[in-house]
Write a protein that binds this DNA or RNA. Structure first.
Length: 1006
RNA sequence: GCUGAAGUGGUGGAAUUGGUAGACACGCUGGACUUAAAAUCCAGUGGACAGUAAUGUCCGUACGGGUUCAAGUCCCGUCUUCAGUACCA
């Protein structure tokens, strides 16, 4: 074999790597460790397209590079294999999701193997594997058995909380930890029933069962987390989402808000990603301000409306309060006179869905409650309004309205004729509110007049705290995360219910395996799919799962309590398994722990994490939360999962469109009269150039008229065709990109086979007889028929070409369209590389042991330097160019010296591992090239004695001049000034100034 | 609206601290080889103008200003695109 037969070579080395476990990482090693991780894929039925491997290629290059650098590299891969698509498919076809998932994984693996990744497959994880989700369930139990102390900012075992309750109740705890629960003493606690104790503890556990308002998606039949909703509809399927109260498991992530925010500081993530997380956490610093309600009725005395504001300095500008329609206080404070009006308003707003309310920003609606509250500082009475611009879910669901300083309050006040008070020095508020806080001086505000925002705020908070009407407060937008899903294909909870209270199953009985069911839909009574299982009850006598028929019905039906209870019917969300998988890779086969302490102490956390930016708020936030929790409880030594993170940009597809003619619009140029004429009796499809060519459109129009018997009106248009502008109404339609060649020509016969409904369509071609489609860049997706399959690329050009071309497309983090057209450049580079090692028409291997030329060594070392810098900066696209330059230069130098080619091969091997292994073995190495040390850059080969100086005149480069590098400034200047070109350009003028930067440039200012 | 990123040839993109703008590819044009095609190789390729030519002049990194001997790069302002986010008080 001497020609570059990439298919044989690639298959050979892929087999070699698998058989020799070349990339197996050891948990014990003298070498320093490095952990490179990809976000693991969801194995969908569609398989991989060329966009998927982009990040994997980048991380693989880095992992291989780190191995050459002498690191013990952990580079695993696995599957996020629980999820909705498998379940939807199961509902449609009746196939068990486990079966389709397994098939999809096999297909993924086949595709991944073909690209030559250096994954350590011995550590593969699958979130849907019971041996894996056993530990997901275990972590859930730990969360249930823990509480969070705000004062110490740490999670602790719930048993310690029980100790506190037994000794001192929760009095001190509320003040210290702000859990805001009804207070009880130790005596009270000790007198509580077991049931009552459990209910109280649920308010403190890090995962808890509570009736909460959730995002319910009727079409999907499940609840969704906030990050699974985009623009008011579900992320998957774009179905409407409504608010609904349901009893659900939730994760108390909100208590970690501050730590999740602070933790970002020390992470090497992009600023934009950190910013996205900061926005999601949404910290705002301000004050709570209490307004006491004043009403004629005795019973209303003492009701306080707590508001939150980030602008305590504007408190003297308050002229009314606004509370959300859903606020519980509405009922309590509304006066008798206003009751009907308020009730009507609330009914109206409740009718609106979340989405409508979001869309309806411009309409200002609200109603007066009739009640007043006392301003905490001025003691004046301010009216209390209800307005739907106040959200029940944020802060306290009530705002102190300062119309002069907030545009929404301003608009509301204007609309309802509520007075506006100006409290800003020299600011005109007749047109709009003034919301800038910087540089504004407060006026008309008693003791804070004349102060700036900052000082005024401090003084107000001080005053409020003094008379117990408010205090400094920090608010977070981050809500607790709903953790229940009404689905089949997810982790079952290790939970059963005794007297309606959740009980954890002892960890030693895990995993709790998913039960078998007939159909994967919710039950007729609206229970989740697990409600269909017959064997889904927990026998506390035998600690096994038993038939539902045996369930103890003591309380309901008077039977004996036989110790058998119903199991939880919900399953966990997709992010459960993905929140901790990076640690399972460290010790994937461990049966006693989610990973051994030794393994986790050795590997610590992920040094480099690569994946898509769509996980910026979901996965990355949740896994940081779980890691902080596991760290608190001593299960992990690290408290952040991912040190460095890179988001690879999406690879887009170039969709192909054909254009179907609907009808013609005829617009008279003279009198603007308009006529729509509908001709096509059959499908007419137009080649691309016709779309904007008025002459062609007119011809087409006339030919259509001739096909039918035209009426008077149409004949009129035809007779005066130049007096009309003819426009076509067209209907773009996706064509499969595989039916289109590089020149955008569509294979019409193939298209008709693909879409039989076009069998009789008329295709109107270009003048040269070809039929062209138009192209548009879109997300690569099966439904847009623009998917390019990496298998096809590997087949035609090889995996090494695919790897290098994906890198060559552009910067890793940037979104870019895929175009197979340019791939030949990279492919012929590899062929040239191959040829460097061969001679005589590629027939014989020909590498010489002679010393290399100075030029070749210079090329080599220049390349080492640049490639190393590029890898470390993740600038893989430029290193591909560097390789091309090197091979072009070495070819020109006719270099075939081992001294140069061997190190070059090591440099290239992370990018193109197969060809590198092959040539490496031809160089008579018995071990894999992955064991070779990275070449060392030596400055001495780049040292030059001469420099080609660019000579500029007034900043414009005119010529170059070769000069020795060791010349002084003055010597350079005199050499330049006496040069004939300089004299020519100066044309007799004397230069005003000559700038000489030795080693760089000369600029003559004339 | 807010936050973040970006705007460079026909195309993807280089230019890391201000110092020869357009590296490297694709595409295109011409040529060699071939019966022909593919493959391969060679040459040219930002735009405009002048010249038979070598070559020369001018314009050029979204737009308008500025700093500097020198600006794609720094500063001020404007526009556009993409992404995220939003009655968040």
């Amino acid at each position: 074999m001497s020609k570059y037969h990439f298919n044989e070579i690639e298959a050979k080395w892929q087999k070699y790597w698998a058989e020799n476990q070349t990339f197996k990482a050891e948990n014990n090693s003298e070498k320093p460790k490095y952990y490179v991780l990809d976000m693991f894929p969801y194995p969908s039925g569609a398989g991989l397209h060329v966009g998927h491997p982009l990040g994997y290629i980048a991380s693989d290059i880095y992992a291989r590079y780190k191995r050459h650098q002498g690191f013990n590299v952990l580079h695993p891969q696995g599957y996020d294999s629980f999820g909705l698509p498998a379940e939807q498919y199961a509902i449609q076809t009746g196939q068990h999701p486990a079966k389709t998932t397994k098939e999809n994984i096999a297909r993924y693996r086949e595709q991944l193997d073909r690209i030559g990744f250096s994954f350590d497959w011995s550590r593969e994880v699958r979130t849907s594997d019971p041996e894996y989700y056993k530990w997901t369930q275990w972590i859930f139990i730990q969360l249930f058995e823990s509480w969070y102390c705000n004062a110490l900012e740490q999670s602790f075992p719930i048993s310690e909380l029980i100790d506190i309750f037994e000794e001192e109740g929760n009095m001190g705890l509320n003040a210290k930890c702000g859990n805001n629960q009804p207070e009880f003493s130790a005596e009270m606690w000790n007198s509580f029933s077991e049931e009552k104790k459990q209910k109280v503890l649920l308010n403190y556990r890090l995962t808890y069962l509570a009736e909460t308002e959730v995002n319910w998606c009727p079409q999907l039949g499940t609840v969704l987390a906030n990050d699974e909703i985009v623009n008011g509809v579900s992320e998957r399927g774009s179905f409407p989402v409504i608010r609904k109260k349901m009893t659900q498991w939730s994760m108390r992530i909100s208590v970690f808000a501050e730590r999740l925010l602070q933790g970002l500081e020390k992470l090497d993530w992009t600023e934009s990603l950190k910013e996205t997380q900061r926005n999601w956490i949404g910290k705002s610093v301000g004050a709570s301000v209490e307004f006491r309600v004043v009403n004629e009725k005795e019973e209303f005395q003492g009701i306080a409306i707590k508001t939150f504001t980030t602008r305590p300095d504007t408190i003297y500008g308050v002229t009314f309060l606004t509370i959300a329609p859903e606020n519980d206080l509405v009922d309590k404070i509304t006066t008798i006179e206003q009751r009907i009006e308020v009730a009507n308003y609330i009914t109206e707003t409740a009718k609106q869905s979340e989405r409508e309310r979001l869309a309806d920003v411009k309409n200002i609606t609200g109603v007066f409650t009739g009640a007043y509250a006392k301003h905490p500082l001025t003691k004046e009475l301010v009216p209390i309004w209800i307005g739907d611009y106040v959200l029940a879910g944020y802060g306290t669901g009530a705002v102190m309205a300062v119309p002069c300083g907030d545009q929404r309050d301003y608009d509301f006040a204007k609309h309802f004729d509520i007075p506006i008070k100006n409290i800003f020095e020299g600011i005109d508020i007749s047109e709009a509110a003034h919301s800038d806080k910087e540089g504004t001086i407060i006026a008309n505000s008693d003791f804070i007049s004349g102060y700036s925002y900052k000082d005024a705020s401090d003084k107000v908070i001080e005053a409020l705290e003094k008379n117990h009407r408010g205090e400094k407060e920090i608010n977070y937008r981050l809500r607790d995360a709903v953790f229940s899903r009404q689905r089949y294909w997810g982790e079952p909870f290790p939970v059963y219910y005794k007297n309606g209270l959740p009980q954890m199953i002892d960890a030693k009985h895990l995993p709790i395996r998913l039960p078998e069911i007939e159909k994967y839909l919710p039950t007729e009574t609206g229970e989740p799919p697990l409600g269909r299982a017959d064997v889904w009850a927990w026998d506390t006598n035998t600690n096994t799962i038993v038939s539902n028929n045996l369930v103890s019905k003591s309380e309901i039906e008077g039977y004996e309590d036989n110790g058998i209870y119903p199991l939880e019917l919900n399953t966990m969300p997709g992010w459960a398994g993905s929140s901790w998988y990076m640690f399972r890779y460290m010790d994937a086969l461990n049966n006693n722990d989610f990973a051994s302490k030794e393994a986790m102490d050795y590997w610590e956390n992920v040094d480099l994490y690569i994946g898509g930016s769509e996980h910026a708020t979901g996965h990355l936030l949740y896994s940081r939360f779980w890691v902080k929790f596991l760290h608190d409880r001593g299960f992990l030594s690290v408290d952040e999962p991912f040190k460095k993170l890179i988001n690879q940009g999406m690879i887009l597809g170039e969709s192909a469109f054909i254009h179907r003619l609907r009808d013609f619009d005829c617009k008279s140029i003279n009198d603007n009269s308009f006529l729509r004429l509908k001709f096509p009796s059959k499908l007419i499809v137009l080649s691309n150039s016709i779309l904007n060519d008025q002459e062609k459109i007119k011809k087409l129009f006339i030919s259509q008229v001739n096909n039918i018997s035209a009426n008077k009106k149409t004949q009129d248009v035809v007779d005066n065709i130049n007096a009309f502008e003819i426009l076509m109404n067209i209907d773009p339609f996706h064509a499969d990109v595989s039916l289109v060649n590089a020149s955008n020509e569509l294979d019409i016969e193939a298209f008709k086979n693909w879409r039989p409904e076009y069998k009789d369509a008329e295709f109107i071609a270009e003048e040269d007889g070809t039929f062209k489609v138009s192209r548009e860049v879109e997300k690569m997706s099966k439904s847009k028929y623009n998917v390019v399959n990496p298998d096809d690329i590997c087949e035609q050009y090889g995996a090494d070409t695919l790897r290098m071309y994906e890198m060559f497309l552009g910067p890793l983090e940037q979104a870019k369209p895929w175009s197979t057209a340019g791939i030949t450049g990279v492919h012929s580079f590899l062929k040239k590389m191959w040829r460097l090692f061969h001679s005589g028409n590629e027939e014989s291997f020909n590498v010489s042991e002679d010393a290399a030329s100075k030029d070749s060594l210079k090329t080599l070392h220049k390349t080492i330097k640049k490639v190393q810098e590029d890898i470390e900066n993740f600038s893989f696209n430029t290193s591909v160019s560097t390789f091309m330059i090197a091979v072009n230069e070495l070819t020109a130098q006719k270099c075939n010296s081992r001294e140069v080619l061997e190190p070059l091969l090591v440099l290239l091997s992370p990018y193109a591992p197969h060809i590198s292994e092959e040539l490496w073995s031809k160089l008579e190495h018995s071990e894999s090239i992955s064991t070779a040390a990275f070449p060392k850059f030596e400055e001495k080969f780049l040292v030059e004695s001469m420099k080609k100086y660019p000579i500029s005149f007034n900043g414009k480069m005119r010529c170059t001049m070769e000069l020795p590098l060791d010349l002084s400034k003055d010597e350079i200047e005199s050499a330049v000034m006496t040069h004939e070109k300089t004299i020519h350009y100066l044309d007799g003028r004397t230069p005003k100034k000559v700038i000489v930067v030795p080693g760089k440039i000369v600029n003559i200012v004339g």
